[in-house]
Nucleic acid binder design. Structure first.
Lengths: 340, 340
DNA sequence: TTGAAAGCGGTACCAT
DNA sequence: ATGGTACCGCTTTCAA
């Protein structure tokens, strides 16, 4: 294996009988350098395949042209889409993307942040883990003067720009659609109320019920801990066995809706005739389910691209930005599961 | 924006009244340092959240503890799983992962490689784009003495270790299962024969037919260009309208199988009774389809983890490894679409 | 066991 | 227009 050392500025300077600073300035075409010298140095550099050692440059400038990105889960259609959007935007601007995942564990998030700080990323894109309450490890970036953008799942404790789904509006219009379809006893399988998305979707759900004079019952709003297919199935069973049985279920996620659909199928309950089902996220599975699942498209790619864009702008301005919240609009996707 | 500089070794040394070298040695637990000093320094470091500036370390050691990873597509259940496996393995070893995607375009792959080289990654994990024929941009890593691992889609022109699905065996056993179920006229919607995976799956398919004395017809093996749902639908239509109509279809991917199923459903052809359908990859959609789709689980996570592991070992040995091929075994997942 | 200092490869400031 | 040099933060050799 060749371990041929790369040629350095010093080598160039020595060979050409000039100083290192002159060589550096020539290569970067600074003003105040004679055209002759520039040509001399550039020709020599090219001929000998000089490649600047970017570690040294980074070290000196304390910049890496690298952005850190931390998500709870990578194998997840929504987050993959977000990452994809961020990579596209960042790469287009000549930035690299360092990616890590937390599996929703605070411990992993801390490790990831340390690793990112250690990697001297110029800025951070993060969607915080469900488990995270203390946010010192993220605050550290801000303390170092590095911009941070929170997307999707965020903490109010961090003063950073945020890019999020418009959960309230999305939930409202999803539930309104159920009402328009004639459903009257609408349940909502929600997430934990410690997570802002869950809170906002719940608020949208409740407001829609209120605005249309429909009954709200606490027993119709169970809370998932892990947002899993299994929980969807269990809660559907629970809801269907209530004395006051709902005639529609608005699920926090398509995966939960899948569990719900599976239970309803096994119990011989007809969707959408007897019970309407609405998901959230528009994963590919929602299109494939039988009956196909009505849901809300979250535009993950756009969320990622927008987050990266904001970060890149802050990097350019050398600022940490304001604390604005950018809400990315959603699309209601109507399919069979809610069309009575 | 506070710009309080991160605390450095020098700060620690000054505060504790020791020298920088002692502080460094204490933090790295060198032998020849008193336990007291080690404790003193480590406690101080922890208390003040000292994080070594890895650019400086990297600079010094000419290593970045960062691995580059390039995939064709990020929003893809298989590749997400591979990435996830690689991240887990790499992070556990204290390595960071720089990720880029090519959208199957050679041009993007070249850009991604340049960016990775500029980022001074220590090694590269890559699944090459369908479009890629010239591999100079990847060879460059090898020329610089950096190890490269190819996974899933590779080029024989590159002398590197490879981690791949055992496509031949997987295809063979998938087709054998169809035969065992009584299907006799088995079609195969394949990918482009320029891609090794397609070639191997085709070989496995053909060998299974031969071993069981079944007829092979070229018209039964159409080739997808983009491996899409739409192509699956089109080819299914084509196959079903052949005078010699197949009674089973082995698809290159679950997505293609979805298109096939949609066509069969629309044409009123019963699965699995009239036509059996087999996918490949075991995406979530295969479980959700109606009828559920038999398929082959590729263990993407394992492929990613194994690739990272091999790379990490080479990094440790400071070698570029042999040109061994590691085949990751698969699991045949039998569901409704092939159970006559 | 500890300290001093060189040096990694650049950049940029201060002289000339 | 060019050279000299300090310096970024850390590791490591040499001395004490």
């Amino acid at each position: 294996m060749s371990d041929k050392r790369r040629i350095t500025l010093k080598d160039i300077a020595r060979e050409l009988g000039i100083s290192v600073s002159t060589a550096s300035r020539a290569l970067n075409s600074y003003s105040g350098i004679s055209a002759d010298t520039i040509k001399l140095v550039k020709d020599y550099a090219e001929k000998h395949h000089y490649v600047p050692n970017s570690i040294a440059v980074n070290f000196r400038k304390n910049k890496t042209q690298t952005i850190g990105m931390i998500v709870p889960e990578l194998v997840h259609p929504f987050f993959s889409a977000v990452i994809s959007g961020a990579i596209s935007r960042a790469n287009a601007a000549g930035y690299r993307l360092l990616i890590s995942q937390t599996d929703e564990k605070a411990k992993n998030e801390i490790l990831a942040c340390q690793s990112m700080i250690g990697g001297n990323v110029d800025g951070l894109l993060i969607s915080i883990a469900n488990e995270t309450t203390n946010i010192d490890h993220i605050q550290e970036f801000l303390d170092e003067g590095k911009p941070v953008i929170q997307f999707d799942k965020f903490s109010e404790l961090l003063d950073t720009p945020k890019v999020i789904t418009d959960d309230f509006e999305s939930a409202y219009s999803a539930v309104k659609h159920l009402i328009d379809q004639g459903y009257r006893k609408i349940a909502h399988i929600n997430g934990l109320m410690a997570v802002q998305n869950s809170i906002d979707r719940f608020k949208g759900y409740k407001k829609a019920l209120e605005d249309h004079g429909l009954e709200y019952r606490e027993e119709w709003v169970p809370h998932c801990k892990s947002i899993s297919e299994g929980e969807g199935l269990e809660f559907a069973k629970q809801l269907m066995n209530l004395p006051q049985r709902p005639d529609a279920i608005f699920c926090i996620t398509d995966l939960v809706a899948l569990g719900v659909m599976n239970y309803l199928k096994s119990a011989g309950i007809k969707v959408p005739e007897q019970v309407g089902v609405m998901g959230f996220s528009n994963w590919k599975i929602s299109e494939v389910m039988c009956p196909s699942l009505s849901t809300v498209d979250q535009h993950g790619f756009k969320i990622g691209a927008k987050s990266a864009e904001i970060l890149l702008n802050l990097l350019k301005e050398n600022s940490q930005g304001n604390h604005e919240t950018y809400k990315i609009e959603t699309d209601l996707i109507i399919r069979e599961s809610t069309l009575k």
